[in-house]
Design a protein around this nucleic acid. Structure first.
Lengths: 134, 134
DNA sequence: TATGTATATAACCATCTGGTTATAAAAGAA
DNA sequence: TTCTTTTATAACCAGATGGTTATATACATA
């Protein structure tokens, strides 16, 4: 995936849109709803007290992030949840699993992450491991 | 975690800030850098061609999301990566693992997610699985 | 054809974001 | 004290975001 320094790789751009899309509770609720089944705009609108255009805007954000695709059924434009962007976001977070799981030591994580995906953000000139004590 | 319908639960608010913080490539790179070790603002600034105040702003966003905590070492304010928000974001995505892993069927996922965390976004009045024809 | 239904678009608004430059503040060093 | 280093804050800007209302479009049906 190659994140870190060069900020404009296509994959990185995707992650921008994906995380941004997930940063809104209405959109997360829409994603949650679509796990169950495809749904029309009207159906997605139902649980919320916001206008239909607002929902359409949210759907466009989800579409741009690749999280939702649209079909066509007469006037309706049924929404379908796409898996891949969720997998991408998960993959990014997965690299830091060791941070929140106590099984690994910091050093283990470093080696682990270098093996799977060279982070190369470092350039740690001084490499002070304990810059302070918090 | 209780997401979906009521949009302003504290946990939901956290996810907003967490995902929003991760939606920027500079901030994701900072997170990646901090996995290795704590770092000062100057150290974090180094790989980027943006100003120091810009970095300070990014750090404030990460702090608000709980992803980074700050220490004190003379003039320096070393940054430390906090695990919990990453775990929270991961936990949210984890609920949809079955969506991108073909092992589960859709129905399996539904049961799975209901067991672990009642989604209750549905209110599926008609429970039409295929919105396409009606 | 006219009407109703489902969705999208336009125009607008307030607020947030990500950047800038200039300046302030905090702390060690001379 | 004065200078230097490190970080934060203020003021500003352009553009995005999330909402609104009003209107247009696309299609089905009476």
């Amino acid at each position: 995936m190659n994140d870190a320094i060069q900020l404009r790789s296509p994959a990185s751009t995707d992650l921008n849109a994906i995380f941004a899309a997930l940063a809104d509770p209405t959109r997360r609720a829409i994603v949650a709803r679509l796990v169950d089944s495809d749904a029309t705009v009207a159906e997605l609108m139902q649980p919320f007290s916001i206008s239909q255009p607002a929902i359409s805007k949210h759907l466009k954000v989800l579409e741009r992030a690749g999280l939702v695709s649209r079909g066509r059924d007469a006037q309706r434009r049924p929404c379908h949840l796409e898996a891949q962007p969720l997998a991408e976001a998960n993959a990014w977070l997965e690299r830091y699993r060791a941070v929140w799981e106590e099984n690994f030591s910091r050093l283990d994580l470093l080696l682990e992450s270098m093996k799977s995906e060279p982070l190369k953000a470092g350039r740690k000139t001084g490499k002070r491991r304990k810059t302070s004590q918090r």
